[in-house]
Design a binder for these strands. Structure first.
Lengths: 133, 133
DNA sequence: CGTCAACATAGAAGAATGTCGAAACAAGGG
DNA sequence: CCCTTGTTTCGACATTCTTCTATGTTGACG
């Protein structure tokens, strides 16, 4: 139930693979992987599910607590949870009758890093000409 | 050409509206706004466009420099740029014959903040896998 | 073993998205 | 004024996504 992470973005501990979105043109293959994660975040239901899971004291939430919070059918919630899991943002485990989900903070940390520009270079504002060809 | 920002996420300077995705359950209305931005990032072409624009020395890029980098028609690139602009991630200006795009770092900064959990609470790991392994 | 409850999966309908070619718009140069 | 080049907009089409109902799977309990 835990082997659905994404290729280059997962728990490999590889920091070289993520040079940041804002510092250099993105590699084509990696842009595909990264887009999958952002696409998983690109839905209001999934964002709310993720925040409900992440902000839960104790670190995990039962699906039975998530489903009634939405005006959607139970299979739809299950589907969204699956997409979040495939994106490597959450993971789950079955204990008895219930299934519990929790956040994988490595992924959100990585995304935050990708969106953070190096403090040293404040991204110079348009000066008039673009310089080179 | 600059009046396409998103409602609650723009340059309003409101910090209260963004309590972080990982600290409290997301407000429903805000999750819709936030999802629009992540959805704009959920495409490999747009990610590459954004990174090309953001990483450009001088801060801005001409469309004529972006288009030949992709195996797509020019209208398609223009369409993707429009979505990035509507998401408040970039802005553009016409100078003579050419149109120049640049990054709006306020939005990426805000997203990075939203994805960053407060350092004080290291999100207690469940019994399962992840944690800090 | 039979039944019930909690979740997941399968398949289908409708909406949204990505892509293209054609056409419109803008600016510069004869 | 017309023509050329750069860019956006418009219509159309194939693909993907969101959601549903129906069904399958897993575990608990008599």
């Amino acid at each position: 139930m835990s082997k659905q992470g994404l290729a280059g973005l997962g728990q490999d501990g590889v920091d070289d693979c993520c040079p940041g979105l804002l510092t250099a043109p993105l590699d084509e293959a990696w842009s595909v992987e990264l887009a999958k994660v952002f696409k998983a975040l690109g839905d209001p239901i999934r964002l709310r599910l993720l925040s409900m899971i992440a902000s839960r004291a104790g670190g995990e939430v039962c699906v039975c607590d998530l489903t009634p919070a939405f005006d959607l059918s139970q299979p739809t919630i299950s589907h969204h949870l699956k997409l979040l899991r495939q994106a490597g943002l959450i993971d789950c485990e079955r204990r008895g009758t219930w299934v519990y989900y929790w956040l994988l903070p490595e992924m959100t940390d990585r995304l935050a890093g990708i969106l953070t520009r190096p403090a040293g270079r404040p991204l110079p504002e348009p000066a008039g000409t673009a310089g080179d060809a």
